[in-house]
Design a protein around this nucleic acid. Structure first.
Lengths: 242, 242
DNA sequence: CGTGGAGTTGAACGATGTCAATCTTAGTGG
DNA sequence: CCACTAAGATTGACATCGTTCAACTCCACG
């Protein structure tokens, strides 16, 4: 496979959570070597610059994408002209969800993105012949559903602080291990993106981040880099009563 | 099949939207007779009273359910002890989504509910041997994801009125055709449920419904029954700028 | 050195949450 | 048949928090 030779990651991959509890515990969160190989056979590699559109809502859906590296945002437009960010896509995520053959969201690269692209028809044909692989896609979709529900939970929080803490916690899980060890959260997105995800105004985002700093929960190193002041205080603030 | 003989609906069924555009348009939103028959072979019928628990978050997931009639609500608990309603399930919906073998939501019947129940292991075995049927489940899950995203859109609305209008519109789609023709929306859920779904206080729900009435958008016939005063004004209010 | 975008800060208004009281309704039992 | 009860729904008064509008700072880039 020429594709497999050209990239370091070893081909398409999907991070997920298994539907059923494995007897080995949380095993098989990623595809097997065989499944990745089968996907590689129908994949081609794409590069997107930061800010570049990956797919557009309501457009005819011809490709499904699997991110190899980089971060993208999925968003829709509200009646008022504002936009809401539905979620962020990271490495090993799937994007290009569709209904009636049309994309249900607009997805734009936030950082430079490298992604595998599959023809919808080729992927569908593969999934029909590989039920086990299809189950992995089902599990991934269930996990996306779970993430969307957690987003709804974040949005239903009254306090701006908690909404922000939930976003920080979400982004944190996708940071490099060394960054996590240093209690640092690297935010690939702008304040406007955070505002659109949390349903707040940009000013409220800024104000409350600084308030969290005054309260000793976080430390604003730079606009894109936040340090957790105290692990214990941070998690306590996430689960707080008030 | 004894099950098929005992129920009028003709066995399990799944309402959905196809992933790909069919050459026949919006065809195949429901399962084929053959698929329903295969599901019936591994299904058993369950009855739930109004208010009865169908499945509980974090519990071992042994069954997946398919509603034949009635309405249920899916909810999670917020740190503050409040609860958020993630969505409502109607006839031909699937429920019992899981991760790591455990339910991700608590589901409770709002009205009396009749549902088919499938053993997870039996359903998984069936889906492995029937990739086409599995694709229907994948499409259904994608549609649930879409609904969760629309819920997030509703929650990100600043105005309480718009959140309520989006809920009314959602419920309306599941009403009986004759009710829709009469421009009536029958709400199976309580004001508290509406509040938990929209992220508002019960009082705010009540106040804004009455305000919508004063504005001539709807007419409150009874707490559980709302009439759309004018179709045009209603849809205009949904898409309004302000 | 100037420019523009992103981020921050300030002040005032307004919508919604909260607390509390009242009203309505369905179900119960005398 | 009627009164009682409890849960759901409504209404009022008030405080709070976030939005809005505006000005300002910071930094990268030419």
């Amino acid at each position: 496979m020429s594709i497999l030779r050209n990239i370091p990651s070893g081909g398409p991959n999907i991070s997920s959570v298994p539907l059923r509890a494995d007897k080995f515990g949380l095993s098989q969160p990623f595809l097997s070597v065989e499944d990745r190989h089968k996907l590689a056979l129908i994949a081609s590699l794409r590069h997107f610059n930061a800010g570049e559109l990956i797919c557009n809502e309501d457009d005819q859906a011809t490709f499904i994408f699997n991110i190899a590296s980089g971060v993208a945002k999925s968003y829709s437009f509200l009646p008022e002209g504002k936009e809401i960010i539905q979620g962020f896509f990271f490495a090993n995520d799937l994007l290009g969800f569709m209904e009636n053959g049309r994309y249900t969201n607009t997805v734009k690269a936030i950082t430079p993105v490298v992604a595998f692209q599959f023809h919808v028809s080729a992927l569908e044909a593969l999934l029909r012949t590989e039920p086990d692989l299809q189950l992995q896609f089902l599990a991934k979709t269930c996990h996306e559903l779970r993430l969307a529900q957690q987003h709804a939970i974040a949005l239903s929080q009254q306090s701006a602080q908690k909404r922000l803490l939930m976003l920080l916690n979400l982004v944190r899980l996708h940071n490099e291990p060394q960054a996590q060890a240093a209690r640092q959260i690297h935010l690939p997105m702008s304040r406007a993106d955070i505002a659109d995800y949390t349903g707040l105004a940009v000013e409220t985002v800024s104000r409350n981040l600084h308030q969290l700093q005054r309260q000793g929960v976080i430390h604003l190193i730079s606009p894109q880099c936040i340090e957790i002041a105290d692990e214990h205080i941070f998690t306590a603030a996430l689960a707080q009563e008030s």
